[in-house]
Amino acid sequence: MSKSAPETITMGTSGGGQWLAAPLRIALLIAAATVALWLVTAGSSAYLTTLIAVMFINAALAVSLTFTNGMTGMFSLGHPAFMTIGAYVAAILTFPSRRKASMLPDLPEFIASLDLSLLPATVIAGLAGALVALLVGLPVLRLRGHYLAVATLGLIVIVQGLALNWNGITRGGAGLSGIPRLSNIWWAFGFMVLTVAAVWRIKFSSLGRAMMATRENDLAAECTGIDTVRIRMLAFVIGAFFAAVAGALMAHLISVVTPRTYSIVLAFNLVVMIVIGGSGSIVGSVIAAFAITIVSELLRPVEESFGLYGMSQVIVALSLILVLYLRPRGLCGSDEPAFVKHYLNGKKHL
């Protein structure tokens, strides 16, 4: 955990003598990324497009986990549980109503007759994830450190168990397949930008400072008037909201969700991303998420041609151990890299 947090709190839109105001520069950045993305998708295969979309969703997930864990100092592994909830809720809402009657007989009538489009469905999915996080958080967030980690791992098992056995609504182990392919690379990109923007705004606000104070020393934070219980709960619930939305978008991208789609291994991979990127660093998490998604995808053909299934996972795990040895604070610590802050804030603040 870094002690250098206070100097990062300089984000602001003021600052004269710059060549462009900060909002414009952010808009410029997003516009440039959009054009680049448009050029990439125009000429590439469906496989590559899907891969990039998955990469964006992974980045959003890593950022939301670094929000819950890195910035607030908790250790939750519950993301896959919330993703599963989000995926099922959204898939049930967008599923064509004429197929719902036969496939999911136990649905209440008003849901069975519903044909939602993707946006309302993902928002409802996100809220469902947040609601579950709120209910689970009430008991679970009293736990610290690895106790919280194991309790949230337990949450994954509990959610998987429910999805496996609640046949009339989830179709059990077979999962929901043939989910309409409503999501695409643009949804994934937009979601990532939204997640990064939201987490960035929170990190450099009073709420973000309260979160980091809770992380560094919760007694001292309490003494300055921060309600650490409320802060932890907020971080957990907001993180769960993003996770559930990510699960929903992913399900509509690959058009299938089963109880085991989002498993403990995914939780581990997300932890690897935020540890390598630097726990609490938004830019670091995005970079690590991109890198790990690409590396494991590049290794897949090697795995397949040599029949060495599991090799990429071993490499990811070993590189995590190496990072813990050599650079335990990760790529960026809990800070954002100087050039990014420089670009967004102007020289004045550095």
Partner: peptide
């Protein structure tokens, strides 16, 4: 002597390594 969470994360990594090496 490192923070508790570091050891915990490392043990997760060891577990994943053992499982996937065995799979391989």
């Amino acid at each position: 002597g490192a923070p508790q969470v570091t050891g915990f994360i490392a043990s997760l990594a060891v577990s994943i390594t053992i499982q996937n090496s065995a799979l391989m």
